[in-house]
């Protein structure tokens, strides 16, 4: 909107420049606090065990130990774990997108008997701490023969398992899209599937990207689900496999942080590209008038 302002009133360009400089100052200061722990992780990952133990270097490593990253990649079957993670993450993203968008459309735009009750039930599923339903869930999966497979991590996503957050979020977004758009589509003879596919989904791109980002992060970083539900170590994901570096007795803080950094990098890259779509959103969605 700053740009629009500049276009309308060219005389204010100078004031805009001052405002931008101020903005940069505020943002830069704040971002120092927000990036600090990441730097701490990085520098810890680059230290030698002796440095860490005896505190010869306070914050910066004396000689960066890039080999810690090599170790983290080579002593575990890194690429097998990575592949396993991708299988789970991609399918969970797909499943969640499918089940969350359909349910959100039903809650946002359709009148059906019992809708409001189902909505409250959906919210209620978020309110129970997962620990207390863990054992019954595990017993259920054991009984339907899913143990020893990846199914417990993947199938629920296609049926809205863990999707209540996204259903609610997308419902809020769908509700914000002007109803006139779908009404005029109905007059043109479109059915609900067409409205859903041709109007709602394309217009909710930033929201869908947010859902994808969050599901990616959730599935990528989740070690507890794979830990409990996977019984075959050949199915282990990266998040779980890298836990081998968690402080064992006499553990290695440097290796642990190297592993953590490896986990963080893909998430950061995805976030960086995902948020770019928010800028596109500003300039290219004129149709929403």
């Amino acid at each position: 909107m700053t740009e629009a302002l500049g276009r309308v009133l060219p005389g204010l360009r100078h004031r805009r420049r001052i405002r931008n400089a101020l903005l940069h100052l505020v943002l830069l200061t704040a971002s120092v606090a927000f990036t600090f722990p990441f730097l701490w992780m990085l520098f810890t990952a680059l230290k030698t065990p002796a440095e860490l133990l005896q505190g010869t270097a306070a914050f910066f490593p004396s000689v960066p130990q890039w080999s810690n990253f090599v170790t983290a990649v080579t002593v575990i079957p890194f690429f097998m774990y990575l592949m396993n993670s991708l299988i789970v993450v991609v399918l969970v993203m797909l499943g969640t997108l499918f089940s969350a968008t359909t349910a959100a459309y039903a809650f946002a735009r359709l009148e059906w008997r019992g809708r409001d009750v189902w909505f409250v039930v959906m919210l209620a599923t978020l309110m129970i701490p997962i620990q207390v339903i863990l054992i019954p869930t595990y017993i259920l999966y054991a009984h339907i023969g899913w143990l020893g497979t990846r199914l417990p991590l993947i199938v629920p996503a296609f049926f809205g398992g863990g999707a209540a957050f996204y259903i609610f979020m997308l419902r809020q977004f769908f509700k914000g899209i002007p109803k006139e758009l779908s009404e005029s589509a109905i007059i043109d003879g479109a059915n609900h599937f067409q409205i859903f596919g041709r109007i709602m989904l394309p217009l909710s791109k930033p929201a869908l990207i947010t859902v994808m980002l969050f599901t990616f992060m959730g599935a990528w970083n989740d070690f507890f689900g794979p830990l409990i539900f996977l019984s075959n170590p050949d199915h282990w994901t990266l998040a779980l496999g890298l836990r081998a570096f968690q402080l064992q007795f006499g553990g290695r803080f440097d290796l642990m942080m190297a592993a953590a950094i490896l986990m963080v990098i893909p998430t950061l890259l995805i976030f960086f590209f995902a948020q770019k779509s928010f800028i596109e959103g500003i300039t290219f969605t004129g149709i929403k008038g």
Binding site: L227, I228, L240, R243, A244, Q246, L247, Q248
Partner: peptide
Amino acid sequence: TGFSFWDYWDKLSV
């Protein structure tokens, strides 16, 4: 099957 010290107990309890 080996588990990290911090994960073993949860896994085994379940």
